[in-house]
């Protein structure tokens, strides 16, 4: 099965290259019924996709009186940044009233080590699988890939026990370990597929020159495969930043990641609902992945072609 996936993602990676744009002659400028239909549909669809982002931004810039009286689609009459300040610094979850900033820094503390650790481990795994095959390696790899499809709920509790035995249940390091484990299937696949495309001659020449396992990894493979490392980083940063389930299961309120804290702020039943603060908090949480998305462009597409399995 591993090879099947290899083929699929290799094809996907190739076709991502084809996404450069349409081929063939430039379209003629014409207002034909066909073009009106195509562009009209695409425009309508684009409005549907953009609407929530627009509503989020507009709502977060209004005061509460304006929200009560007005229309959610109307632009703000009086722009105020107060909801943003409040969402960041003073919004309450339970007893803590230091806003989303706490969750933000928790998420940073979770994401950075998780991304580094998971990519380091998975790239070495992929390298070993691609270039230093040993007996039985494919069996473990197949189990690993199957693991990517098993619903997380099946493994939730055994991991609680595991983390408790290791003494890191409820801490940031516990969650980092969990992210490393669940990032492993897709990243290992990604790196393995990439490293198999590196010409064998290069590898053989390095061995003749006396380079060993680590020598070849650091001196040849690593410098050659920076793009794939960037793709892996995109997958991991967005994936880990957006995670909710692992955060809520494996951490305690003090170290909750941003998504969990956001949900607690917005869906809390106490107090008056401040929709503008809620929307400001929501958009602040979405800023990091959105930033990565708009900056990375085509590499993001390549990442999801490979990472889609992770869901």
């Amino acid at each position: 099965m591993a090879d099947v996936i290899t083929r699929d993602t290799a094809a996907a990676a190739m076709t991502a290259g084809r996404m450069e744009g349409p081929r063939g002659a430039k379209p003629k400028r014409s207002i034909s019924p066909r073009n009106v239909f195509i562009y009209g549909t695409l425009l309508l669809v684009s409005i549907y996709y953009l609407l929530p982002l627009y509503v989020m931004i507009v709502t977060s810039l209004k005061g509460m009186p304006e929200i009560r009286l007005g229309n959610i689609f109307a632009p703000p009459v009086e722009i105020t940044f107060e909801p943003w300040v409040k969402a960041w610094a003073t919004a309450c979850t339970g007893l803590n009233c230091d806003g989303l900033s706490r969750g933000f820094w928790n998420s940073v503390q979770i994401t950075v080590p998780s991304v580094i650790l998971s990519i380091a481990i998975a790239s070495v795994n992929g390298y070993a699988l691609a270039n230093w095959r040993f007996k039985g390696a494919d069996v473990f790899f197949t189990i690993l890939i199957f693991g990517a499809f098993i619903p997380y709920q099946v493994m939730l509790y055994p991991i609680v026990i595991l983390l408790r035995e290791l003494g890191i249940y409820g801490t940031l390091w516990g969650l980092i370990l969990v992210h490393t484990i669940f990032g492993m299937p897709i990243l290992t696949l990604l790196f393995r597929n990439y490293f198999t495309t590196v010409p064998e001659e290069l590898f053989k020449a390095a061995r003749v020159d006396g380079a060993g396992f680590w020598g070849i990894y650091f001196k040849i493979m690593l410098p050659m495969s920076l793009p794939i490392f960037v793709v892996a980083m995109i997958i991991q940063i967005t994936g880990i930043w957006n995670d909710f389930l692992f955060g809520v299961v494996y951490t305690k309120p003090d170290v909750y990641p941003m998504t969990v804290q956001l949900n607690n702020i917005v869906n809390s039943v106490q107090g008056v609902k401040e929709y503008n603060v809620n929307m400001a908090a929501t958009i602040i949480t979405g800023l990091v992945p959105l930033f990565i998305y708009f900056v990375s462009g085509k590499l993001f597409v390549r990442g999801i072609a490979a990472g889609a399995v992770k869901g």
Partner: peptide, 29 residues
């Protein structure tokens, strides 16, 4: 073979970068 293909694609794909929590809260609103 349309114009602005990249723009349209970028618009249609950006929600995928957002978490389900953000998605759920926006649509709840």
């Amino acid at each position: 073979k349309i114009r602005f293909e990249n723009t349209f694609r970028t618009i249609m794909l950006y929600p995928f970068a957002l978490s389900f929590i953000v998605t759920g809260l926006v649509w709840q609103w």
